[in-house]
């Protein structure tokens, strides 16, 4: 039940992020939306690692760590590109 609650929260986060990504145009909102979608997927992975009394499944934990670093990298590149565009437009 706890798994469903936490994993379900992940699905809700994913859906909220997807909605925000599709509806809003500013870069920052889109990036935050993407990161929320990512957090949703990571939520689900963390939720299914739970095994009651036993120690949790380490594989999804490691996947989430990898996923976070990938998400950080992509966010950084997108922000840098966005700032480059902003500077170019400001310079005109």
């Amino acid at each position: 039940m706890a798994q469903l609650l936490y994993g379900g929260a992940g699905v809700v986060l994913f859906a909220l992020g997807l909605w925000a990504f599709l509806v809003y145009t500013p870069l920052l909102r889109k990036l935050i939306a993407l990161n929320i979608m990512g957090s949703g997927v990571f939520h689900l992975l963390i939720a299914i690692a739970e095994r009651g009394e036993l120690p949790p499944d380490p594989v999804p934990h490691a996947l989430v760590l990898t996923g976070i670093v990938v998400a950080v990298s992509a966010t950084a590149l997108a922000l840098a590109m966005g700032r480059r565009l902003e500077e170019d437009e400001g310079g005109r």
Binding site: F14, G17, L18, F21, L27, K30, L31, L34, M37, G38, G40, V41, L44, L45, I48, V59, P60, G67, A74, L77, A78, M81, G82, R84, L85, D88, E89
Partner: peptide, 29 residues
């Protein structure tokens, strides 16, 4: 400006695709 904005859009769309793909992977696992 055209190249950066077009490829920024490509990057964002690609990220959306990756996240959607990853949710499918999570379901399968």
């Amino acid at each position: 400006v055209e190249a950066v904005s077009a490829n920024l859009r490509y990057l964002l769309v690609g990220l959306l695709g990756s996240m959607t793909y990853l949710l499918g992977v999570a379901l399968l696992y």
